[in-house]
Design a protein around this nucleic acid. Structure first.
Lengths: 231, 231
DNA sequence: GAACAATGTTGAACCTGTTCAAAATTATCT
DNA sequence: AGATAATTTTGAACAGGTTCAACATTGTTC
């Protein structure tokens, strides 16, 4: 049903051209933002014809997806180095979240457009879409690791859903970050600090027997949420 | 800083033309979706020249804003009738949420694009932007009413932030609804049922002295979130 | 190496959102 | 009414994303 993978590359030369175009695009996106960067300009800087850019990227939006994958990989590696060092849940979550923000910072200016495109359910960039499933799964796996690799014990039923919950939480933070125009993104950092603290408290509380009914409803709710997404 | 109000209307005739164009637009959006509807087609159906549509709506996106305002008003009135009948917090919140979904249902098909546009921080449609402030404030006021008009007592510090929290929650539900392709939007309705139940439980728990520290951090977090938005 | 197929590249043409100067209409004033 | 100003309407022109048929290059087969 969904489109084929972006870009038809069968040759080394093809690979090379594709990379050149992507490089040109990301560079210009950083320099003058998404809107201001014209497909013609990208092709020019890459030294290819306009049509050639479309041979490798079905649309201007698909260039965003490439960016997506790139920062994602970067985040994976930075997050990984945090997760091998720390055992404390709070430190782990904090580290991963900070890594995310830092990874993505150079693109703050055009991240808005990115997210906007991504919000459209018909867009392949949509974080809930089939097409972004691989990236999403990896992302969720990171949050699973955050919890399982920590010293905090989590009730089994919650453990099933917690990674996805944290992923959603992290999407919320990204949303805030996009709107954050404070110097050095200070507010986002403060928000992360505070929200992580609360989350960790909540996760701690979750084991309390008093919390059981609430926890169960929350878990069931999440399960349903996920079901909808993947169907 | 921000643009003047959409559409410069000084005359009855102007008002009339504006309405005709908006009507044509919404109708076509419903029929074939946002993307498929061309500004030229809208102008045609409204029986005016292309440029004239732009005289009343600065851009195609601004037509969405008009739609926004319209469903908003409709929701206000439906919600109001619920809030005068019911005293029980759960029933009130449930009623308001269901009213929202029903109001917005006819536009499900192009709501995706709507939300996508809205997600861009530079867009005037952005629900956090100055330009949508009036609508947002009214919306938040509804949720304030939901709580204060109910029989449930809420700690004062929480009460300050709760309406905004509920508004955010409602945005989340809308986001889910947009992605919901189940028949009759069954999943969204189930999600509302379950999440409202949880929320009401949580609000009940919030008065518990044990919850005080957590509640306080949550409130402070929210206050900060809002601050960022309005600055 | 010649013939053929697969892959990559080109640029003109198309579509649609948007702008704008000029024209038409309507309101206001004397 | 006539003159003048304000408002509304027009359509041509522009810009940038996208498509596509033709051309060029590279790989494969005999």
């Amino acid at each position: 049903m969904t489109k084929a993978r972006t870009g038809l590359v069968k040759t080394d030369k093809g690979q090379q051209t594709r990379a050149t175009i992507l490089e040109a695009a990301l560079q210009m996106f950083r320099e003058r933002g998404y809107e201001q960067t014209t497909m013609r300009a990208i092709a020019d800087r890459a030294g290819v014809a306009l049509g050639n850019a479309y041979y490798y990227f079905h649309s201007k939006e698909h260039l965003i997806q490439a960016f997506y994958g790139r920062t994602h990989e970067e985040h994976l590696s930075v997050a990984d180095s945090v997760l091998t060092k720390e055992r404390d849940l709070k430190a782990r979550l904090l580290g991963v979240m900070r890594a995310k923000i830092e990874t993505v910072e150079p693109y703050h200016q055009f991240a808005g457009k990115l997210f906007a495109t991504a919000a459209d359910p018909h867009s392949p960039l949509n974080p809930f879409s089939d097409e972004s499933d691989p990236v999403r799964q990896e992302s969720i796996a990171v949050f699973a690791d955050v919890v399982t690799g920590s010293t905090t014990r989590v009730p089994k039923d919650l453990m099933t859903e917690l990674p996805y919950m944290l992923w959603l939480y992290h999407m919320g933070i990204i949303l805030f970050w996009i709107h954050d125009s404070s110097p050095h993104r200070a507010r986002t950092h403060r928000l992360i600090d505070r929200s992580v603290e609360i989350l960790v408290k909540l996760i701690g509380l979750a084991s309390n027997p008093l919390m059981r009914p609430l926890r169960r409803s929350a878990v069931r709710l999440m399960a349903e949420l996920r079901e909808d997404v993947s169907s």
